[in-house]
């Protein structure tokens, strides 16, 4: 069902919500639920828990809507809330959480490694759909902070600038970590081939 609200940008919908218009927040939810759920779902890997988490993110956003500044994209503001919630969850689960601006130990997944070798290709003879299934499983094995960047880049299609804004980090650092996440993913696929 289309309405005039669908044509409003996020900043206008936020203003309307702050004036008590619940329909405006309904549109905000519908506009961002898919991308947020696909991010959180891939980070937590439990559908029901991810749904609860996504709801909580919208509740937190609603409660702190006054602090949103239209200078930044609303979606990056939402992703920041979601990312903080996910990090809290990992901490509670005692999963290792390393800030991505911390320098990781140099290993063979660094973006500076030479890539040409004589090993058989990890994707040789695989259909994209089969590769996708293996990739979905491999996501679980990717360290949490790298998984987040991988999902943002490839599943949510965020730009490096958007990721840098969410993480409040320089774009160059984010790029470097994304390259590292991709290389680690490739190696996991190679190991599980």
């Amino acid at each position: 069902m289309s309405s005039m609200y669908d044509e409003f940008d996020d900043a206008k919908l936020v203003k309307k919500t702050l004036r008590g218009d619940k329909r405006a927040f309904d549109i905000i939810i519908q506009r961002h639920q898919h991308s947020l759920f696909n991010y959180i779902g891939r980070m937590i890997n439990d559908r029901e828990l991810a749904l609860d988490f996504t709801q909580d993110v919208f509740l937190k956003a609603y409660a702190s809507l006054k602090s949103y500044r239209p200078l930044f994209k609303f979606s990056t503001w939402l992703f920041r809330i979601a990312s903080n919630s996910v990090i809290d969850y990992w901490r509670k689960k005692k999963l290792p959480v390393v800030s991505i601006d911390q320098s990781l130990a140099p290993d063979e997944d660094g973006p500076g490694i030479q890539v040409a070798d004589d090993k058989p290709s990890v994707v040789k003879g695989l259909e994209v759909s089969e590769l996708g299934r293996r990739l979905e499983k491999a996501l679980d094995k990717l360290p949490t902070q790298l998984r987040e960047l991988f999902v943002w880049r490839h599943v949510n299609g965020l730009s490096y600038e958007e990721m840098a804004e969410i993480k409040r980090m320089p774009v160059g650092t984010v790029k470097n970590r994304v390259f590292q996440a991709k290389e680690r993913m490739r190696r996991i696929l190679e190991e599980t081939a």
Partner: peptide, 12 residues
């Protein structure tokens, strides 16, 4: 190919 497969993951 890996990037393409990641972008084509079945949406939740």
């Amino acid at each position: 190919l890996i990037a393409r497969a990641a972008a084509d993951l079945v949406p939740l």
